[in-house]
Design a protein around this nucleic acid. Structure first.
Lengths: 223, 223
DNA sequence: AGATCATCGTCAGAAACCTGTCATCCACCG
DNA sequence: CGGTGGATGACAGGTTTCTGACGATGATCT
């Protein structure tokens, strides 16, 4: 039976995970960075990998891509402190079997491990902080949008809305999808919050590349 | 080819999920409670199930147990508003492939669905977003037609009409066929909606390769 | 505490838009 | 030349979306 690879740059996390996994009856190898992780794959029979996203040399997603590129189908669970939906989607689409965000509950993680034991050229070294599209730079930490020279501050709702639209740029976001993702299910379908919010956004950011798809929702076009 | 089963006691959630899944190219069946969910498994080919935990008659976990008891290995994703770790662990140990807690983000859930689905649906393998013929590229999501450099937006009706003609390019579409396929049978044969719609289309898209077959209907010629 | 301010959901009216009908005109066919 | 079927422009009714005003709420400041 193969081992479980734990790759994380933090010593503390590595030992903690090792201990939990061993206590659960698995055998474990660890690696402190992406390069080392890949080396482990060459050297040992790995039956499941836990990869942190943030790591030196190669991040978890890059390791994942490289593995899949080699045709290696070992199940991978991606760990990350990043809660962004985009990261999750990216990881899963790249072939991770699961995505768990830190802080995680040990028992849950162990259950997920048990479950799965028996997978872009888009380099994103550390730029998780800014979301850019079509002249707009959205600062995810400060909740501000920069359009050319001007910096515009957004309210909570406006910010979530814009971020969502920008992440899914090119795709049509249905009204109910936006409602669900930004407001949660606390709203009846007869509310026009979404429209109002888009309206406010449009009046703050002149020339916002968001078009209305009548009867459906909105779409952020532009690269 | 199998469908995705959505079992949840809340109407709102069911329709929301259906819509999202359909938009993602899957076909969907729903069930309002556990008993109905099991019936669906007997009646249809299901390639993945989304089960809410809280449901009448049988809850999601019971449904899951019963399925596994029968030897059915269909992947199941458990949904729940319950955030307790215990519930998660239980679900995963019972054989769920994933556990997603509400409120969830649509894009993430869709990614998880894509991840776990057994038979990739042929409805929309994702490249089907554009329909191309004779200099015209039709964006099926945004309801827009691109002719050379120009992008023209279409109304719902115009869009359906053009899509229909383009898909059946080379064939003659009879008037009553179009009426039936696009408008449904709610129209008497003495209406000229079809003509008007084609007319509007022709005036929006100059050089539309659609010819009139006198006494019969219309035909999109061109490759 | 009281005052002030920003945020945000609701609402109602306005604006924009969609779409079927109709009357009229035109092209084709015999 | 008459007749039929198709094209076209105007219009009206209905629907969707936008927008500005308002009030509730909660945070911040004095």
């Amino acid at each position: 039976m193969g081992k479980i690879l734990v790759a994380d740059d933090e010593e503390r996390v590595r030992t903690f995970l090792s201990r939990s996994l061993v206590a659960d009856g698995h055998s474990v190898v660890t690696a402190p960075d992406g390069r080392a992780a890949l080396d482990v794959f060459d050297a040992e029979a790995i039956s499941l990998a836990l990869l942190d996203i943030v790591m030196p040399y190669r991040n978890g997603l890059q390791v994942l891509s490289e593995l899949r590129g080699r045709g290696d189908r070992t199940p991978v669970i991606v760990l990350s402190a990043v809660t962004e939906v985009a990261a999750r989607v990216q990881a899963l689409d790249k072939g991770a079997v699961d995505y768990v965000s830190k802080p995680f509950h040990t028992a849950e993680l162990m259950a997920r491990v048990r479950r799965h034991i028996v997978h872009v050229p888009e380099q994103r070294p550390r730029e998780d902080r800014y979301l850019t599209a079509a002249d707009i730079v959205l600062d995810l930490d400060r909740r501000k949008a920069r359009v050319g020279p001007a910096e515009i501050s957004l309210t909570e709702r406006e910010f979530s809305m814009l971020a969502h639209l920008m992440r899914r740029r090119g795709d049509v976001c249905r009204r109910d999808e936006l409602l669900n993702d930004i407001w949660g299910q606390a709203f009846g379908p007869n509310s026009n919050v979404v429209d109002v919010c888009v309206g406010r956004l449009r009046s703050k950011l002149r020339e916002l590349p968001v078009e209305t798809i009548r009867g459906v929702g909105y779409c952020f076009y532009g690269t």
